[in-house]
Design a protein around this nucleic acid. Structure first.
Lengths: 203, 203, 203, 203
DNA sequence: AATGAATGAGCTTTCATTCAT
DNA sequence: AATGAATGAAAGCTCATTCAT
């Protein structure tokens, strides 16, 4: 009698997960090209051939990795959207972003390494521009709703600030006074809620 | 009679320079691994063998490239140091930084791709940590001298901001309102020169 | 209670047959090396592991295939042996041969592809030379008995003719005027029965 | 100073030729798939990489091989076309064909192995059907001009005969009474030239 | 000094075969 | 008996580097 379908399925899932985890570790440290399939299989604790039972190619491993976490970015914004003031929004957003990259340091290192290689991204079928544009628009909308002037420019600056802080944080490997930096960064934005719509402001 | 020693030397230097320029173009577009030595030689207009007369290896080309421009970063700060106010310092620094990456987009794309791969950096004998520490200290010093409170934290934030803005600028390939973003970023820092030492504030 | 031994045996035989049929189809179309064991199992409708319960290896499937049909060739001659005249013999033999390759086009394509690769045949333990020698002798005998002069040479020619016609027929995939060609080929050989033994030929 | 262009060119040509010769030997004995690139390079006495400096792929070696000798076939017919009688035509044609395959036994073994694998031929971009059709038409024309009745059918038979004899000859590796077989085969066709055109023949 | 043919290690990927279940 | 996940050797191919000229 064959193995039960359930056992097989669990087996497959486990192996697949191990490959993805190994890939994050190695790709982020040695780069995509710097990681051989052999090394990847070894790190995952499987035979080379098995890798191809789960992924069509080495490239497919990377694509799966990237796609599976595109959602994380917008979730970061969801949290911040609860905050009524611009400063609160920025604070929570920075905290979420840092928490996110902290939880997946390797993965983000990988992403930071990839983002400036348009030809590589194209080969992988990943469109970064789209994601960035979308994120920027959500930021602009959030700032506008909280009464920030020139929300377009401010959103660009906020995006750049979050980006810069997250990268510096990842790069410092541990002793970065992140709380203080976030506080300093957020202090730039107003802590008062915008005057209510339609109501004609202070009497 | 052979060419004079001088002529030979000049010729060598020219070839070397062509290789480095070709390397920036190709490495930044296709990555280090994605660029073959053959392609590099062809782009430089020389034979493969010649490349090895000027550089020990493909890796050596990359190392030379990176090292030759570490100096650029501190020069950026030299310009800004002329400014008496924090806001002036930040403004000029951001402008210099953007001018720098704009002039060498390809090179900086390459650097941004490399900086998060510790293993690769180590193999190349490049210590990024040292450069960053040094830069941070100059920033901290500059802010302190201009009367900024918590200069350590503020320097970290400034570094992250410059970093973030420069990357976003490089990534947007052209239509980024860089002047407005710089103005917004600089507006965070005081536009007044620090009160003179020992004197307790404005009379 | 388990299945009866008989039922099991029948099942085994059926599976085995399915594998062989799948093998003919795939091997003849994509070649032996071009057919993977996975594809073979799938075409046969069984799991990969099952294939190895019936055959020792992929090669063993091929060997079984070839051996199982070496007998077909001599049966072709049996039919023709009923004919009293050389022309009748040749006609029936050609017809039988064509019927045979027509019924197993795939298989014969496979064989035609293999026969000129001595190294491969040796690895498979197939001795073609023996079969050919045997067939030639039966042809020679048949022609001699029907009064053909120089039966050795004529048998070689007949063999070559059958071989050539069968291959052209297989290769033309449908619109080959086989009846006309057979008639033309057979017309070369005498339609009269041989004069009885001991009688000294023409009076 | 670099090697002279002439020396380089000669070097290249020599290597290329060695590869082709090695390819005929190995492909014909072990088949295309049965011959590894490593084995091919070794037989040619070069490094694996060199092979790819001369041919785009292993497949390209085979294609080059096949194309370079398609002309041989029609040249065989050119010789025979000088003969005024059908028998003479057939005799010379058979002799030429045998001489041809004798001079390139390995190559023809290879071709005979390939011709029944349509998918492989298609992958190589080789159209056998076209060549066969063309050859058949030349045969039909030749027979018609020499007064043979039903030239279409007879041409098919002749083609099959030449094909069969050549293959048997190649397969027998030496002790095949080819002269006698050719004589026997040719004896089937008329030895008298056709009645002249325009002349109204028998009154 | 200059060339590019030559080398061979190492890459990604496939696949015959085994084996835990 | 039956399954298909797992193995790892070997395939085709690339490319940094060397070296004869």
């Amino acid at each position: 009698m064959p193995r039960t379908a359930d056992a097989n399925s669990a087996l497959r899932e486990k192996t697949r997960e191990r490959v993805l985890q190994a890939a994050v570790r190695l790709f982020s440290r040695h780069g995509f090209d710097g990681t051989s399939v052999r090394a990847l299989a070894q790190e995952a604790g499987i035979a080379v051939g098995q890798l191809y039972a789960h992924f069509e190619s080495k490239e497919a491993v990377l694509v799966t990795l990237m796609q599976s976490s595109l959602g994380d970015v917008s979730r970061t914004l969801d949290d911040a959207d609860q905050e009524p003031t611009a400063r609160g929004f920025v604070t929570v957003m920075l905290e979420s972003a840092v928490t996110l990259v902290d939880a997946h340091r390797d993965f983000w290192r990988l992403g930071y390494g990839l983002r400036h290689q348009p030809e590589v991204l194209a080969r992988l079928g990943l469109s970064l521009g789209h994601l960035m544009e979308q994120t920027h628009q959500r930021l602009e909308q959030a700032l506008r709703q909280r009464g920030v002037r020139e929300p377009h420019t401010e959103a660009l600056l906020l995006f750049a600030t979050v980006d810069g802080i997250a990268q510096q944080y990842v790069q410092h490997e541990g002793n970065y006074p992140i709380a203080a930096v976030i506080r300093a960064a957020a202090s730039r934005w107003p802590a008062t809620p915008p005057s209510r719509k339609r109501k004609t402001g202070t009497p």
